[in-house]
Computed example of a mutant assay.
Amino acid sequence: MYRASRLDGKLDENTLNFLSSISEDKEIAIYDILGSQAHTLMLFENKIITKNEASKILSALEKLKKENFSIKSESEDIHELIESLVIKKAGMQAGGKMHTARSRNDQISLDIRMKIRDDINILCSCLLDLIETLVSLAEKNQGTIMPLYTHLQQAQIGSFSHVLLAYADALFRDLDRFYVTYGRVNESPLGAGPIGGTSLHIDRQSTAKMLGFKGLIENSIDATGSRDFVAEYVGQISILMTNLSRIAEDLIIWSTSEFSFIELSDKFASTSSVMPQKKNPDILELVRGKTAQVIGYQMGILSNLKGLPSGYNRDLQQIKISIWPASKIAISSLLVINAVLKTMKINDQKMKMAIDSGYSIALDIAEYLVKKGIPFRIAHKIVGL
């Protein structure tokens, strides 16, 4: 549809497939519709379109909320597809005015920000659930004594509760990072146009308010061409996944027959196709593996951004490919680790036996000698002999 204004003929199939982002854009279809509804209302409020035209556009958009958007389309992206469907339903005289004072450049930035806002809310809810589980387990295991490790060697004696609260503290920082990121994401780019705004009298504050944004991205170049907020968001997911991966690694080690500190529920383990005795922590191993995948997404985003000139460039289309799966992986990882923790069995006797067979109290003995007046370095040498 857009090509008809300037270029002759249709794109050939291979070129369309190369250009198209429809398969990724299904994730933001609902946000594109909501943004279009707000934009239409603003156009009517500012007497750019009539009440009848606005009514036809809004009616068509509302019907599209129930649409199952097919990845087979001659449209390059979800914006073009939705506009073409609105025109089909509302007619060119009304539907053809929906895109007035707007560009795909501010449109896609809007859609991404709205999607990320919702994903952050889901992530924070899942994080709070996991933290609650950890605190509850910690409360129940204040008296569960276990060896604490550095370099995967026994270091000191501590409690299982202490370890669980260490996880909770790290996840609280993740929660705080998402909270701060949400504030930067929650600014509207709509109305910035392709790069330099519009000559028409519009009200950017009105659309921002309708869509729940706290304010505007004032600079139109920044609003349409910047994706640092995406890099920040996926970066926070990368840190979260790294924390979850370390938790998963601990649980994997502790569930081995050599440690047996915990036993995973059968619901969160798998067996071997040939070795009947195996109970493999595949779920936790996949958390580790998917962490590497998310870090790869972050590197892809930064690599994409580093060489771009100011303003919108089509390269930015490829960033969407990294956002949606990163969100899904983080949400699913939070859910499965929470379930693993809730259902695992804790073998406190095995933890105690590990302490009894090691030298975890060596530092305590050295510090006892210090209390008797012996210099620490000498006490360290005496205990180490």
Rank of each mutant, 00 (worst) to 15 (best):
L171N: 06
F172H: 14
F172M: 14
F172P: 11
R173P: 01
R173Y: 08
R173M: 11
R173H: 09
D174I: 00
L175F: 15
R177A: 13
R177W: 13
R177T: 04
R177L: 02
V180C: 06
V180G: 01
T181N: 14
Y182Q: 07
G183C: 08
G183L: 05
R184E: 03
V185D: 14
V185A: 11
S188Y: 12
S188R: 03
P189D: 04
P189Y: 07
L190A: 11
G191C: 07
A192Q: 07
P194T: 14
P194G: 15
P194E: 14
I195N: 10
G196R: 08
G196I: 10
G197P: 04
S199N: 10
S199H: 13
S199P: 05
L200F: 09
H201N: 15
H201F: 15
H201D: 15
H201E: 13
D203K: 06
R204H: 06
Q205M: 13
Q205P: 02
T207Q: 09
T207L: 08
K209A: 13
K209Q: 13
M210R: 14
L211M: 11
F213I: 08
F213D: 10
L216R: 09
I217F: 11
I217A: 07
E218K: 08
S220G: 09
D222L: 11
A223G: 06
A223N: 07
T224P: 12
R227C: 04
R227L: 03
D228L: 06
D228H: 09
D228E: 14
F229Q: 11
A231T: 11
A231M: 02
V234N: 07
G235Q: 03
I237A: 13
I237K: 08
S238D: 12
S238R: 09
S238E: 08
I239W: 06
I239D: 09
L240K: 05
L240A: 05
L240E: 10
M241K: 13
T242I: 13
N243F: 02
S245Y: 06
I247Q: 11
I247F: 02
I247W: 00
I247K: 08
A248N: 08
E249D: 09
L251E: 01
I252L: 00
I252R: 00
I253V: 14
I253G: 00
S255D: 00
S255V: 01
F259T: 00
F259Y: 11
S260C: 01
S260N: 07
I262F: 02
E263M: 06
L264E: 03
L264A: 02
S265F: 09
K267S: 14
K267Q: 07
F268I: 02
F268G: 01
A269L: 02
A269V: 00
A269Q: 01
S270E: 13
S270T: 13
T271E: 05
T271D: 06
S272W: 04
S272E: 05
S273L: 10
S273V: 15
S273C: 12
V274H: 02
M275T: 09
M275H: 10
M275K: 10
K279W: 01
K279G: 11
K279C: 09
